[in-house]
Design a protein around this nucleic acid. Structure first.
Lengths: 205, 205, 205, 205
DNA sequence: TATGAATGAGTTTTCATTCAT
DNA sequence: CATGAATGAAAACTCATTCAT
């Protein structure tokens, strides 16, 4: 039996969640610098002061929102990579495919993440947070690559660091397309292409 | 024969050039939103009003600066691609190598370019300018890919658009490393790696 | 005989008293404008709303606190002045000495009192309250002066109002020193000096 | 010959002076915390931004204004004290009389100065500035007292520091009356009384 | 051409106060 | 009695832009 209170709580998300959703919307639409706290407050249907009750500054709200949103992605990716039944090719396609899917459904967040690294270097605190965030995803990617290596799918003389860079580049380029171009993407097909490109290259045999 | 005017022009760069250089420095250091016209004026050693004599707004100064800086890169790349003596592998490595070299010596500009696309979407005018700029470079890249295709280095069934995306991704990822990581990079070696990855893939044969 | 209620009251001061103490601490430390209700609530270990149950506004809390604190001083001074066994010199030194002692042990309150008159004139309600407060102490001082006059210690042609002003000036200057300068003060010696200065002057005979 | 420009400059005070006057008016009327930059700007008939062109913060404007205003007083007092033709009694009355006169015509400034010491202790920078200011005036007063001592008007066993405190107390109390009470004051008579009180005391001979 | 004082709209942030629980 | 989440008015401060000189 669920009481009335809980029903209500489901129907109208808790204030903090409403704020996080509004922040995602507005920051995603306008970028960090052009978004105003007033807009976010309005979008969340709360007073400006309420924002500051939950987050001590615009900066903290921004980073809180990113952490919240990308936490979901990270947990899902970790779940996929922990699946022992998948061998490298399947794993690669599941991972990259999920990246694309996530970016497709959370464009704002994806855009923010793609820009964050080079873009917030005027702000030490935020910049460091994003460096750490990128590192976490890089480690995840690097785990994927090591799996390919151990299972014998990748070259024995592989330079891991460069391979990671290449993978990250492919990922962000295809994610970028999902964001920029509307209309339906064949996400699975894109993942297949990325695998083919990464493993076999685009050269003639 | 060099006339007096030109001598002077060499010694003390014309006002407009000083402004463009100062803009590059300041925008590159602080990003579009955190840079102020006052800082740029000071860095250029001119009055704030002078900025507005040459550029009607901050926005126009920014885009003028990007156009100015990347114009150099574009011309150089076109010169390389027009060289008939180079076959695809050499051409690919010259092109990508020059991208890296340019990014390495013009970090600020490179950073601005990498971010610009996703980052300025709050500003229609600037955003469109950058879309066009990216298109110009994409066309250049696509020309490179078609060369590889025509010369038989790339797969007969190549999906050109996706190949372009992949190339752009590789490029920006390796450019990003040049920017973020100090210390000397083996730019030529990176270009070789990119070629290998793009054409042969990283898979075991 | 002490009943249970009083025991409890001793152990855990009643909410209102805790608030008054906290207000004294925080207002004294930060001044009226820089103190926040939130800080006071925290210092009193009550919720912010509780403050408003006892005092209808920040202003009322402030004036309540002053009244509470200076009430003690006033009652004590009245007790001294009512003592029929003291003649003018002893009375003067007891009174001024107690002023100094009180200021020394209640620095916050003393500081607030010293400033209040000139400082809160932007706030009619508070300002009037402090005018009245000062008047009450001035009357006390004037009583002291009249005693000196009646007992023949002071000039027959004394201009009472000016004498009051002079006494008030001496008092606040020496009180100010107690507040500003740490370390032990010879409070009794200061009181003696004040008497000497007030009655005999500092000129050579 | 005075040209039109200079005439104009006389008629409409330079912007910075207008700001300083407006600041004196508004800070004096409302106190530091209750005065707003917007009000001061309006009183000076300039835009809010202009305030910040001349003073980097509210704090700096406040301290600039005090320095400006009290600088006048200090210079005048120094001129008086340097007059070799005056002996102690005349000097004392001239000095104290000028204090009163200045306070009477610059009530706002006088009020600010009286409160500053105890009142701004929440703000380190301002507080230190005022400590120094008070020290400068204390040195001036102490010079006056040493003159009286050297000329044999004051007791041979004088405790200088206490005498300074007493003088400062008398001064601020009488200055305070000038500020609080409207109507004409017999400033010269007050100065005479202060001398009498300080040197001879109010006791019967 | 070049300048820099002047502007004010727009932003983040604070905090006394309220009120449903 | 007591709480603390929610509010919004108000304040300091920034900075692109203008314009008289």
């Amino acid at each position: 039996m669920v009481n009335a209170d809980e029903c209500l709580r489901e129907a109208v998300p808790e204030t903090k969640d409403r704020i996080l959703e509004a922040a995602l919307l507005v920051f995603g639409e306008k970028g960090y610098h052009n978004a105003t706290m007033a807009e976010i407050a309005e979008a969340a249907a709360v007073g400006k002061g309420t924002l500051y009750w939950y987050f001590s500054s615009k900066e903290k709200l921004f980073s809180g929102m990113v952490e919240h949103g990308l936490g979901l992605l990270e947990r899902k990716l970790r779940a996929i990579i922990s699946d022992p039944t998948l061998s490298f090719p399947g794993l690669f396609k599941r991972i990259t495919g999920y990246y694309l899917e996530f970016a497709y459904t959370h464009r704002h967040l994806a855009r923010i993440f793609l820009n964050s690294l080079h873009n917030l270097h005027d702000n030490d605190e935020l910049h460091n947070q994003f460096l750490q965030l990128h590192n976490r995803f890089n480690k995840l990617n690097s785990e994927l690559i090591r799996r390919g290596y151990r299972e014998g799918y990748l070259r024995p003389d592989l330079e891991t660091e460069r391979a990671e860079t290449a993978l990250a580049g492919l990922l962000s380029a295809f994610i970028g397309r999902c964001i920029l171009i509307d209309g339906d993407h064949q996400l699975a097909a894109e993942a297949d292409f990325m695998y083919d490109c990464f493993v076999n290259g685009l050269g003639r045999r």
